[in-house]
Amino acid sequence: MPHPDARPAGETVPADLTGLAAVVAENIRRHFPAEEERHRQVLALAEEVGEFVGAYRRWAGMARRTGDFSDVREELADVVITAYVTAHVLDIDLETAWRAKARHILSRGWRDQPDGNTS
């Protein structure tokens, strides 16, 4: 039985992660105190990362029970979605932020060499 707040199965999913984050954040706001939003969302992101790590460990045979790779895929998707929701509530333009970070990563070199050369 679907949750009373669930959207109908045929309803359109937002076209991008920023739009999805806005929809998710708005729905969460209807049910939880506004003054705790930022703390709650940062903790939710940490929780999702932990769930991803747990799913990976189960799939990789590093846990007491096994798991399917589909669980790894779904948990990683949860991490990405929750990161976008977290950015939304923190007023971070994540599209701009990840592009700026990518430029930095691609311009800094990959590994320092023993002689100090960074190429």
Rank of each mutant, 00 (worst) to 15 (best):
L17V: 07
L90M: 09
W98L: 15
A15N: 09
I28A: 13
D93S: 01
V89K: 05
L90I: 06
L45R: 01
W98Y: 12
R64C: 06
A83E: 07
R58I: 00
K101F: 03
I105N: 15
A55L: 01
R38F: 01
E95T: 14
H31G: 14
E95R: 15
E37T: 14
G61W: 03
I105G: 09
D16E: 05
T66Q: 09
G19K: 06
L76R: 13
R40E: 09
A34P: 08
R99G: 10
Y84L: 05
G10R: 11
V72K: 09
A44F: 14
A34S: 12
A44P: 15
P33C: 10
A87W: 05
L20A: 07
E51K: 12
A83F: 02
G67L: 06
A77G: 12
I81S: 02
L45K: 03
G50N: 02
P14I: 08
D16A: 01
Q41A: 01
A44T: 15
E11K: 15
A9I: 11
A21N: 04
V49L: 10
T66G: 06
A21W: 14
A63E: 15
A100W: 06
R30M: 12
H88I: 02
V23Y: 09
A55H: 04
T12F: 00
A87H: 00
V53E: 14
W59P: 02
D71I: 00
D71R: 13
A21S: 03
F52R: 07
T96A: 08
H104V: 06
E47A: 02
E75Y: 12
A44W: 13
T86R: 00
E75L: 11
V23F: 09
L106T: 15
Y56K: 12
A25S: 06
T82I: 10
R103V: 14
D93A: 00
R64E: 14
L43T: 12
S70D: 14
V85S: 04
G61K: 01
K101H: 08
E35F: 01
T18S: 07
L106R: 14
A102P: 01
E75A: 08
G10C: 10
A77W: 12
L45Y: 01
G61V: 02
A63Y: 03
P33A: 15
R38C: 00
T86K: 02
A25E: 07
A63W: 02
I28G: 08
V89N: 03
A22E: 15
A102R: 14
W59R: 02
D71N: 14
W59I: 07
K101N: 09
A102W: 05
V89M: 00
R64H: 11
A83R: 10
A34G: 10
R29Y: 05
E36F: 11
E11N: 11
F32C: 10
Y84R: 11
P14D: 05
V89I: 04
Q41Y: 00
L43I: 10
F69M: 12
F69Y: 15
I28K: 09
E36I: 09
E95V: 11
V42R: 12
T18W: 03
V53H: 09
A60T: 07
T96W: 08
A55S: 08
A55G: 04
A46S: 12
G61T: 06
A46C: 13
V79I: 05
V80M: 09
G19R: 07
D91H: 04
